[in-house]
Design a protein around this nucleic acid. Structure first.
Lengths: 116, 116
DNA sequence: CGGTATCCACGCGGATACTG
DNA sequence: CAGTATCCGCGTGGATACCG
């Protein structure tokens, strides 16, 4: 045991702060976003998020699992196969993720700024 | 120069990742959430977010300002007065923040609810 | 009041090597 | 394929003191 992800859940502050505790970490939202489209294997996730390292991906996946946002399924096959999918709780974050994506598409795709 | 907040903006990954770069940091979303209700002074923000330290609050506010999400107004008065408010861009994040808050309220069963 | 400046600890996170 | 293990730099962020 490397004793990573020593957080899982926290109980401080308002609902916004507490919600953030579940989705902070550099890659959680991105991972959840990818999984919205369907179940993915470990290396499929890696390929879809090139900037993440293996270590970090594992770490974030473990935290997401510990928080009940994703489901990790191991198939005891000869070439190991592990699939990650959203739990009901994780899927309930879809409005948040899509709102964030919509905002990103609108505010970051266009180089123009400050449309007051 | 303390050389803090050396990020401001990044341009990597998909729109979700890039959007996250603007709102990562432990307190940004919380700050934006508080400012949704109206302009606040520095110490008013501190009081509304007890867990944040002065240093971090300053840091996060500077980054938010650099990213054009909030507006910092200094009133040259004898007891200094600095007010923070959302920019148009920052206010456009309201759907994201409210979606997150709604999710937190529903999934974390918060003991208290604040009026939107 | 609204910050800076400085010191310092800790853990995040990258790089690399190894495994069942 | 899907991880662990280990090393380690560096940024994050707390505590404290000071300032205009």
């Amino acid at each position: 045991m490397t004793q990573l992800h020593p957080k899982a859940t926290m109980t401080t502050g308002c609902s916004v702060e507490r919600a953030l505790n579940l989705i902070d970490g550099k890659w959680k939202i991105v991972i959840l976003h990818k999984l919205l489209k369907g179940t993915l294997r470990f290396n499929e996730l890696r390929r879809q998020i090139p900037a993440v390292t293996q270590r970090m991906l594992t770490n974030q996946l473990r935290e997401l699992e510990a928080d009940g946002l994703i489901i990790r399924t191991v198939y005891p096959e000869v070439p190991p196969r592990v699939e990650y999918s959203l739990s009901a709780r994780g899927r309930s974050l879809e409005p948040v993720i899509m709102a964030l994506k919509a905002w990103g598409d609108r505010n970051l795709s266009s180089p123009e700024v400050e449309a007051a």
